[in-house]
Design a protein around this nucleic acid. Structure first.
Lengths: 347, 347
DNA sequence: CTCAAAATGAGTTGCGTACCTCAAAATACC
DNA sequence: GGTATTTTGAGGTACGCAACTCATTTTGAG
């Protein structure tokens, strides 16, 4: 009736006795220090396995003495999503300092590969781990690999660089996000047929391209009555997005759905309202911000696909910490889910 | 450009010097031990505040010696949701033992107040913290309060007992969940008018009642074209749910929406399919299980409102640990979100 | 002023690990 | 066989705090 999930309270001393060696040798094996015969290494590891020994993380942390430092390399300039991440890190400050962790924000132009690579360069000397919102570019990839080679743990945040040897990616599956957006637009439009517009920052951005891909996939296979118009590239700017969309709306009277892939939400909403069609067009966008929250409540937006920035921030810290300690990562826990937010489940 | 979010590396010794007292006195204040003049207490606390001092959690954990034990009091019998929670706790076992935490499952009949209260009785002696799936009943409330009075930390899981003095509730806001379900049914039905059916376990269960309340709220205020039929009480049983629903479907040809509040999903789906109306009726239910996953993929179910059991399990452990250590709880992190799961964002 | 009680200081021990030194033992090489 | 090299043992120190003891100082009541 009472089933125990954990027990062990062994120490290194016990392992040493078990393996018939001294504490020093166990220590050498545990930290891959040289000077131990392969056969002895095997015996020690066997003893560790056999007892499912876990070093006491508190003792290890205390013994190593120095604190751990992490850097978050993020886009400079005003970006609500990034500001939220920073805010959530701030909320963790007590948690961080109780563990003697320090997190520092490094703002840089992440959209310029050489600038970003340059910013990453010097970091390995000062930091145990780096979380970076990165562009997928050869120069950036090389900089990330250099960090990894120097022993610094690297986590990509929000936007991945899968070709690099980064230790982990903290962010959503953007193709699935696009698919969800497509399913929502299609389902919320209902039986009507008509056209669907897409506004993106740029198709050159990996995450935007992936979202559009997923969106089109669903539209093509599940909603044949809806035809998707060519993507408008608003460069995540309000003005430009507004103008492009206004023109499109004027030209097509039968637009029934709209997917806003990136930012520029303000402009998109304005174009829709100015045309007096904000209630007729199903509008799905991304992220829960003060603006999208308001639009959802007003009924202008119908749904927002969201990646929880608080979760991302905390997951990045936890993953960096686990990597630095050599602990296993709780994959389920650190996976960033795709949230569908409508008016009634606004967080 | 590089903004630090944390720094401090003060120790108790520093605080003692700052406050002009000895280490022993700081220790007395920190642990509410007697024998310190009120004025001195104030001085010490001021020094702690002034420096935003945080005791090194690793050192504290190491010094206290004994391990912490938590109990999870859960329903006996086969229950997929609870089995998932247990499975997720199992996945944490390395994490737990590295922190010298032990988690034990206590199975009991949580639906019988006196049995549940009895199971809770003896726990305070053995456990530092208890997570319990509880019924809101005076006897249970008293048992919870007794635990709290004995110094054991108590977290209610999935189902709350707000009238008790439990330290925390880990679960979703069921009214909001019902509202979300209502919004989904309403929006997915589209412009059509017609009737909406509700199948629940029992309106006597707090969570079910709250969900129905939220659902009706939204239907009444936002979807006047849909009329909600009286609730069918299927007692979370497949057979009974199927029979009740089949009869209802036969009687009303204009049912366009269906909300399944609890379990019994198998029966609900069968009634719908047998009537040949599984594609016409918008069907929204709860939780992602093997069954609902299949129904979503088949298009029988249109959406599932889900509370992530993995998140609930981990949050309960983290909250109990934070409470036991006297650490602040990261509210944002431990809040259980309401997930809207459709075919394209199935986890 | 005296004496008991309260408040405080000074110190010790131990938690389990990391990291280091030095000597001793075992092994390999010629 | 002897010497060089590798491998291992034994031990110490430090990390920051909890928890405790005991002596000393301060305070307050009579």
């Amino acid at each position: 009736m009472a089933e125990t999930l954990t027990a062990t309270a062994l120490t290194l001393k016990d392992i040493a006795r078990e393996a018939g060696v001294s504490l020093a040798t166990v220590d050498r094996v545990l930290h891959n220090r040289p000077g131990v015969r392969p056969d002895t290494v095997r015996r020690v590891k066997a003893a560790i396995e056999r007892n499912a020994f876990q070093p006491h993380v508190a003792a290890a942390e205390l013994a190593r003495g120095r604190a751990r430092r992490f850097a978050f390399v993020m886009p400079s300039g005003p970006n609500p999503f990034m500001q939220q991440i920073e805010a959530y890190l701030g909320e963790m400050s007590a948690w961080l300092s109780a563990r003697r962790l320090s997190v520092e924000m490094v703002a840089t132009d992440v959209f310029d590969p050489s600038v970003l690579a340059g910013a990453l360069e010097g970091l390995s000397a000062d930091y145990d781990g780096v979380a970076v919102v990165a562009l997928d570019h050869p120069g950036v990839r090389a900089a990330i690999n250099d960090l990894v080679d120097a022993g610094t743990k690297v986590v990509t945040l929000v936007s991945d660089v899968p070709s690099s040897r980064r230790d982990h990616y903290v962010g959503i599956d953007n193709i699935a996000a696009g698919r969800s957006a497509g399913a929502l637009v299609g389902r919320l439009v209902g039986q009507k047929s008509g056209k669907v517009a897409i506004v993106a920052g740029s198709q050159g951005l990996r995450d935007h391209a992936e979202r559009i891909f997923g969106f089109n996939q669903v539209m093509a296979s599940e909603f044949p009555d809806l035809s998707v118009l060519p993507v408008l590239e608003g460069r995540d700017e309000d003005d430009r997005s507004e103008q492009l969309l206004a023109r499109l709306l004027a030209r097509h009277a039968d637009i029934v759905g709209l997917y806003n892939v990136g930012a520029g939400t303000q402009g998109v909403a304005k174009a829709l309202s100015d045309a007096g069609r904000d209630k007729q067009v199903v509008f799905v966008g991304h992220d829960v911000t003060a603006l999208t929250r308001r639009l959802l409540l007003q009924g202008v937006m119908d749904a927002a696909i969201s990646q929880n920035p608080g979760h991302e921030a905390r997951a990045a810290v936890r993953v960096l910490l686990a990597l630095a300690r050599g602990e296993p990562i709780l994959r389920e826990q650190e996976k960033i889910r795709i949230d569908i937010v409508m008016r009634d489940n606004l967080p």
